[in-house]
Design a protein around this nucleic acid. Structure first.
Lengths: 191, 191
DNA sequence: GTCTATAACGAGATAGAC
DNA sequence: GTCTATCTCGTTATAGAC
């Protein structure tokens, strides 16, 4: 009925294309012009939604985190190993979708070109993922999916780091199967 | 005596600073102007050495590979585990040196903004590293440093991918120790 | 081998009309 | 909410003097 109920279509489309570019060419690899072309509007119009590029960057990270939180909530009742496998499946999908990378990996490479606000936002997001991985791995031990003496703190870190690096190497050699093999093997080594 | 014997000081300095920038802000994160400022010359002068930025990029990768080949040759007679540990030590040093990243990781994130020439050069470099890791891991089994049934193909991939991702996460949280812990743990898990 | 000067372009950002 | 128009700046790259 009122304008607050109508969905901000342009805003959402911009975020969607922003995510695409971020994961394929990096945050510094695309411009307002690129987004504007895709949306069929002028780049000046984008400043109505995002006052600056940093503003866009913060919105993109926030959106990623929203998706991630939704994902973990949706799968919270599954056995731990299935939760971790579901995340791997989602990441594996990136290798087939324009060889996208993990956004955290991309942004970390560009980190020194960002403001501290974006830096902090990204670090918080990664800590969030790390907390989930750690807790899920601990749950997996209780469920006997992983060995009792597994160092879950270490496992959480290497799991997330390997996803990042694995997606990057898979892109380099155009070999999605490489990601699959490495990460499945890592999960198996936790047993 | 002749000019071919005098070292091309400017050229080498440019490569050195190029490496620094590549690993701290990415290849697209610095300009000829940055290099020129550091060297105390005009940016136009750099085109005497590098006809284009792509040309500079190719030279930087070639230089990395030269260093790597030298490194492996130098340590070739050490036990396998010491060779791998030496490489980890070198990478760990990056975390303390302006939080540098693995150049392959950085360049892979920016890959879609590069020419196919640079893409191929980078892929070849990574394959070279992968071959070394694989062969060294196999040697480590013979030397009883790693378990007999270790999947060395898998181990080589996860080793290199974790280095990449590990350096990135260490930068994000400004925690060099994180890299150390993850990678030492991985190597130990191969036993 | 380094310089000045300049071309050609694309970036982020803003003012103000509609 | 989207537009035109414009500003300012930084980028790669080239021509030609010294």
């Amino acid at each position: 009925m009122t304008q607050t109920l109508t969905p901000p279509k342009t805003y959402n489309e911009a975020l969607k294309r922003g995510h695409y570019y971020l994961q394929t060419v990096g945050f510094n690899g695309f411009s307002f012009q690129d987004l504007a072309n895709d949306l069929g509007i002028r780049k000046a119009s984008l400043h109505y939604y995002f006052s600056s590029k940093e503003d866009l960057g913060l919105a993109l990270i926030k959106e990623y985190e929203k998706y991630f939180n939704n994902f973990t909530k949706k799968n919270a009742k599954l056995p731990a190993i299935q939760q971790l496998e579901a995340w791997l499946k989602y990441c594996y999908g990136m290798t087939k979708d324009h060889q996208k990378l993990c956004p955290i990996g991309v942004l970390t490479c560009e980190l020194n070109t960002f403001s501290s606000k974006m830096h902090k936002s990204l670090a918080k997001f990664q800590s969030n993922q790390r907390r989930w991985a750690h807790q899920t791995l601990k749950q997996g031990i209780k469920e006997k999916a992983f060995r009792k003496n597994l160092d879950t703190s270490w496992a959480a870190d290497i799991f997330l780091e390997s996803i990042q690096g694995g997606l990057q190497i898979a892109r380099l050699h155009k070999k999605p199967a490489l990601f699959q093999k490495t990460l499945k093997g890592l999960l198996k080594s936790f047993s």
